[in-house]
């Protein structure tokens, strides 16, 4: 998580001499775990988890690294699911082209929504994104290509690059895993780039960034579109995994869920939203078969999290003595 060019800071707990190796080891073990996971768990569950983890990571790019709270991200996630499903099922596109269309569509929606919402800040920004996402929801409810309440059913997964049959669960899983890793690498590069430095400066002191000549709204819009596009990547994949696209994915509840996942895990960290998404999806999976109402339980978990660890699970770990001695740093 911490960039290699971050200088060692005074006043912080001194880093463990092998901190960097340990961090790399943690990443390697996690990757190995993900590679072996389909032998131990139900693949559809794992793929759902990866889709939501990527969705939450895309959302965190905006909330954690740009400081913008969007309440309309379901629009990009669910919208891309519709685009991909439609392209693959009706037009007979290949899965990779379908996903790319989903990404492009989500990016375009992001550009429109961002251009309108970016002019306002804080709660007004959140409200405008919510309002625009609701507009999109009603569009999806009424438009013919989405099939309203029914959604787009039985979407074929097709063959990746015309070669790999994605109807095989294990092929599909490794495809989703590869897209997930690529998505994370894009986020990592985006945050740790010259552009990312400017975003950071805007988050730290927006007035100062303006006075240094930066048109901050353009940078915010850039981050917004990138976040929307990656949310679209997650949504398009989900449509292929479940082989359907429904209204559920464009509701405001979905926008709320991704906020919950990100805050639970910890904003401004790369691992946080992944862990948060993992927790929420796992909880939902377990509770789906029990008597407990899912939303009440996740709500209680969220409240407990906000009251006990404000930084989120990963955020608290990074800020702890152990986390810091391993060289992790919670981002401001």
């Amino acid at each position: 998580m911490t960039g290699k060019s971050e200088p060692v800071q005074s006043g912080l707990a001194s880093a463990h001499p092998r901190a960097k190796r340990i961090r790399i080891a943690i990443i390697m073990v996690s990757l190995a775990g993900l590679l072996l996971a389909p032998h131990l768990f139900y693949p559809i569950f794992l793929m759902k988890l990866l889709c939501f983890a990527l969705f939450a990571s895309a959302f965190n790019l905006l909330l954690g690294y740009t400081g913008l709270l969007s309440f309309g991200h379901a629009c990009f996630f669910g919208g891309a699911a519709y685009f991909t499903a439609h392209a693959v099922k009706i037009w007979g596109w290949s899965p990779e082209a379908g996903i790319l269309l989903g990404v492009a569509g989500a990016a375009l929606l992001g550009l429109i929504m961002g251009a309108i919402a970016i002019r306002r800040q804080g709660i007004y920004f959140a409200m405008i994104t919510l309002a625009l996402a609701q507009l999109f929801y009603f569009f999806c409810l009424q438009a013919s290509f989405t099939h309203g309440e029914d959604g787009i059913q039985s979407v074929p997964r097709g063959k990746l690059f015309g070669l790999i049959n994605l109807h095989d669960a294990s092929n599909m899983y490794y495809f989703v895993l590869a897209v997930f890793v690529i998505g994370l690498l894009i986020i990592w590069r985006f945050v740790n780039s010259p552009f990312g430095m400017i975003l950071k400066s805007i988050r730290e002191n927006e007035q100062r960034a303006i006075s240094l000549g930066y048109s901050v709204n353009r940078y915010k819009l850039g981050a917004f579109v990138m976040s929307a596009a990656l949310a679209g990547l997650a949504g398009g994949m989900k449509a292929l995994v479940f082989q359907f696209a429904t209204l559920t994915d464009v509701t405001w509840q979905m926008s709320g869920e991704v906020i919950l996942m990100t805050l639970l895990g910890g904003i401004g960290t790369l691992a946080g939203p992944i862990i948060g998404a993992g927790m929420v999806v796992t909880l939902q999976n377990y509770l789906a078969t029990s008597e407990f109402p899912v939303t009440i339980v996740t709500g209680l978990v969220f409240m407990a999290c906000v009251l006990l660890f404000r930084r989120g699970l990963i955020g608290e770990f990074f800020a702890s003595k152990l986390g810091r001695s391993l060289g992790f740093r919670p981002d401001s």
Partner: peptide
């Protein structure tokens, strides 16, 4: 008006980035 969580050097570099044309590249490493 400083960027509090950036180092002194990073603060100055933020200002240098724009005139050097190194502000919009989201694909380049730090």
């Amino acid at each position: 008006a400083v960027f509090p969580n950036l180092t002194v050097r990073e603060n100055v570099k933020i200002a240098l980035q724009r005139p050097s044309g190194l502000a919009r590249q989201f694909w380049l490493p730090l």
